[in-house]
């Protein structure tokens, strides 16, 4: 379980996070929703210790972040984090060089699944394919937790479908997934849990199925309620 407790972060005069707390379970897909600039990405970076929090605590299965945790949790940012001049094969080699948790068999499977060619240079890939390689590099790690920042933004519809397919596949199964999005429609049925953010605080944290069952409301309904009210 990822536990974020009372996260606070200020950039200059702007208080981006003002006491954000939530949890994300293993085996579930948790979605951080909020309009752009609300600090979703900052939270993910905070979890990965890529941006230090001003205060608050982050625990992953009860442990604090450390270098060894990068074998247990990974982050897929919204842009690929590889050197553009590398080929896909070189990028995979790089990952294999440094991560014990790199699963080459799964990487190969993902290559097939996404119909990617190893020899291609990252810089020459289309937007959609770049996003897929980015996803591949994260998914091929045998980690317990996956953080994804806006996996669907700015990608063509076919790539989107393919990426959505990943969420329902064994590639994600049993892992804890945290994704951020500002556009819930496409993935409403995919997610277990929603954390609604605004003005640096969590407005509402709920499970989607419970919300439908108990109140007959879709995620969008709740968002409408919360953000307008």
């Amino acid at each position: 379980m990822i536990e974020a407790k009372e996260l606070k972060k200020r950039f200059g005069r702007k208080q981006i996070l003002n006491g954000v707390s939530f949890t994300a379970n293993k085996g579930e897909i948790t979605c951080l929703i909020g309009i752009n600039g609300v600090g979703k990405t900052t939270i993910l970076k905070g979890i990965m210790n890529l941006t230090p929090m001003d205060s608050g605590q982050i625990l992953i299965d009860g442990e604090k972040m450390s270098k060894d945790m990068y074998e247990k949790i990974t982050f897929i940012p919204d842009a690929i984090t590889m050197i553009p001049t590398m080929t896909i094969a070189e990028a995979m080699q790089f990952m294999q060089d440094y991560y014990k948790s790199w699963n080459q068999a799964r990487a190969t499977e993902l290559l097939r699944f996404f119909k990617l060619k190893q020899e291609e240079k990252i810089s020459s890939l289309s937007k959609g394919n770049t996003a897929k390689v980015n996803l591949l590099l994260g998914l091929a790690l045998d980690v317990d937790y996956l953080l994804m920042d806006e996996p669907f933004s700015g990608i063509d519809i076919f790539s989107r479908e393919q990426i959505a397919d990943v969420f329902t596949s064994h590639l994600v199964e049993d892992r804890g997934v945290v994704i951020t999005t500002h556009e819930i429609n496409d993935i409403e049925h995919l997610i277990d849990k929603v954390v609604l953010l605004d003005n640096g605080v969590v407005l509402k944290e709920f499970r989607t199925e419970e919300m439908r069952e108990d109140e007959g409301k879709s995620v969008v309904d709740v968002m409408r309620e919360v953000y307008r009210g």
Partner: peptide, 17 residues
Amino acid sequence: RRELANQLKINPNTAQR
């Protein structure tokens, strides 16, 4: 349940339920 989740584009946990 995984095939189902995949076919319906729903969360595997939901299919399981």
